[in-house]
Structure formats: structure tokens, C-alpha cells
């Protein structure tokens, strides 16, 4: 029996992206630079997160022609973002042939209570999380890949680190709990019980987990890999830096050779100016994209 768009096939593409870097791009020219640098996929956008942050207003799904034009020039997978809860934007992206949909807090949420029922689609979804409960709720809704939220468009890795450490330590805690404590743990973190049982047994998420939100240097990428993520999303960090080509290539190499400090020293040389970055404490609560998601 042939099965198109099964959960195995959806999670399978994420498995193939592991150890790789997914780069935000806004034009076909940037997409080609990303592919040439060794990106394993690109995220097609109208504006990168730091511009969304600077310009304000409502951020929506990109114009379909931006996505189509990018799909036409690269052979690697092309992802695109839909607003949280906006299942029609997701249907449009699926119809365009996007390879993955990011139901993303970088865009302005379309629903303040509910996320998209992602089981209902043939195209796979990736969603952000700050903690294990949030990750498992999204997987329960059908997400086939998880990423940390971090704080997008800041060039500051501290939030991605916090989110990854939180997820890892909450998973470790579940593996040590006796069976009778797991139902209360599921209740307390607001996570589906069957997925809590899965994590307690396996010590890992049932899907691939990437880092996102604030990664700006090869060292940032290697740090997240050493903390245990499967791969890296870079948003504003590449095309808001002084030398996107060199930086993109360096982040790809650092993601593969994340444990090789000598090579990392070599890779990190002469990359020009990184994006300038924002200290998180200067953001007001309404400026923090990571608070979006339910």
C-alpha cells in the first residue's frame, strides 16, 4: 500500500535536514547564496525577523510569488511561514508546494487561543517551543519538527539557550520519574499524556529538534549543537551581517564540525561584522515574539 504524506514521511524530511542549517531568505539571489554556502533548506520570507521587529505592524504570510520565485531557483527544500492558527495561509502554502510550513511566532498570530490542526495536512509543519509542554502540545497537534523559539531578530542567543536547556532538563526529569508521577507531570506541563510517556521512556522528543531565534555566529551554532539540538535555523543573522556569503558558509561548517574547537577557530576568522543585536532586557513584553503561542 502506498501512503502519501504519512507522519513517517513528514518526520522523515526533518531527519534528512539534521546536522544542517536552514537559512531565512527574502529573494532568489539570497536563496542561491544560501544554497551555494551549503544550506540544507531555505525559509522563504517577505522580511527577516529583525526587519519585522523594526518596521512593526502586522506580519503575514509572504506573497506567493516570492515563494514561487525562490522555489524556481534552488533544488534544496523551501520552507515558508504561516501565522499561528491561520490554517488558510497554511493551505495556500501547501498548494504552492512549500516543503515545510513554519507556524511561526515571528508573524503576528491570527488566533489567540488555538494553533493549526496540522494532522489535517499533507505538508509537514515545524513549530517553536520554550519548554517541553509547549513542544509536546505542538507535536500533539501534528507538528513533525520542533525548534526552540529563542528571541527572533535579536542576534542574541541567550533565549535559544534557555529554551533548549529547559526542554533538555524537563526531559531528563521525566526519565527519572516513577510511573505514578507522570500523569500529574502531564497535567502540570499541559502536555498530552501519551507523549509524556514517550519522552519518559526514550529520553528524547519523538521528532527532530532544531535551534532558532538569535543565532548569529558559527560559535552560536556550535554551542546549540553541543547543547543537543539536531540542526540550526538562522534568520536575520546571515543577510543582516557584513559578509553574508562568508558567514553562511562558516555557520554550515560549524554545524557539522561543532565539537572541533581548532577547526571552529579557523572557521570563525575574518567574517566581517555580525548583525548588531539587541539585549533582551531592553525589549518590552509586547516586543517579545516568544510569548506568542498557546
Amino acid at each position: 500500500m502506498t501512503d502519501i504524506g504519512s507522519f513517517k514521511v513528514k518526520t522523515g524530511l526533518a531527519e534528512m535536514l539534521k546536522g544542517g542549517v536552514i537559512m531565512d531568505v527574502t529573494t532568489p539571489e539570497q536563496a542561491i547564496i544560501a544554497e551555494e554556502a551549503g544550506a540544507c533548506a531555505v525559509m522563504a520570507l517577505e522580511r527577516v525577523p529583525s526587519d519585522i521587529r523594526a518596521e512593526g505592524g502586522v506580519a503575514r504570510m509572504a506573497d506567493p510569488s516570492i515563494i514561487k520565485n525562490i522555489m524556481a531557483v534552488v533544488s534544496i527544500p523551501v520552507m515558508a511561514k504561516a501565522r499561528i492558527g491561520h490554517f488558510v495561509e497554511a493551505r495556500i502554502l501547501e498548494a504552492l508546494g512549500a516543503d515545510y510550513i513554519d507556524e511561526s511566532e515571528v508573524l503576528t498570530p491570527a488566533d489567540d487561543s488555538y494553533h493549526i490542526n496540522k494532522h489535517d495536512f499533507k505538508v509537514p509543519f515545524v513549530c517553536g517551543c520554550r519548554n517541553l509542554g509547549e513542544a509536546l502540545r505542538r507535536i500533539g497537534e501534528g507538528a513533525a519538527m520542533i525548534r526552540t523559539k529563542g528571541e527572533p531578530g535579536t542576534g542574541n542567543v541567550v533565549e535559544a539557550v534557555r529554551h533548549m536547556r529547559t526542554v533538555m532538563s524537563e526531559m531528563r526529569a521525566l526519565t527519572l520519574m516513577p510511573q505514578e508521577e507522570l500523569m500529574t507531570a502531564a497535567k502540570d506541563m499541559g502536555a498530552p499524556y501519551d507523549l509524556v510517556l514517550y519522552v519518559a521512556e526514550h529520553g528524547k522528543l519523538p521528532v527532530v529538534n532544531f535551534a532558532a531565534g538569535g543565532i548569529a555566529t558559527p560559535a552560536d551554532a556550535a554551542l546549540m549543537m553541543q547543547l543537543g539540538v539536531d540542526g540550526i535555523f538562522v534568520g536575520s543573522g546571515i543577510f543582516k551581517s557584513g559578509d553574508p556569503k562568508a558567514r553562511a558558509k562558516a555557520i554550515v561548517m560549524a554545524t557539522t564540525h561543532y565539537k572541533d574547537a581548532k577547526l571552529l577557530a579557523e572557521i570563525s576568522k575574518d567574517l566581517g561584522q555580525p548583525m548588531s543585536g539587541i539585549e533582551i532586557s531592553t525589549l518590552t513584553e509586547s516586543q517579545r515574539m516568544q510569548e506568542r503561542g498557546w
Binding site: 500500500m1 502506498t2 501512503d3 502519501i4 504524506g5 504519512s6 513517517k8 514521511v9 522523515g12 524530511l13 527544500p77 501547501e94 508546494g97 516543503d99 515545510y100 499533507k122 505538508v123 509537514p124
Partner: peptide
């Protein structure tokens, strides 16, 4: 085809 055409089979 693209990802939406990915499949498993016997």
C-alpha cells in the same frame, strides 16, 4: 516531486 509528494510503499 516536492515534499507533498513524498510517500512510503511496499
Amino acid at each position: 516531486g516536492r515534499q507533498v509528494a513524498s510517500f512510503e510503499t511496499d
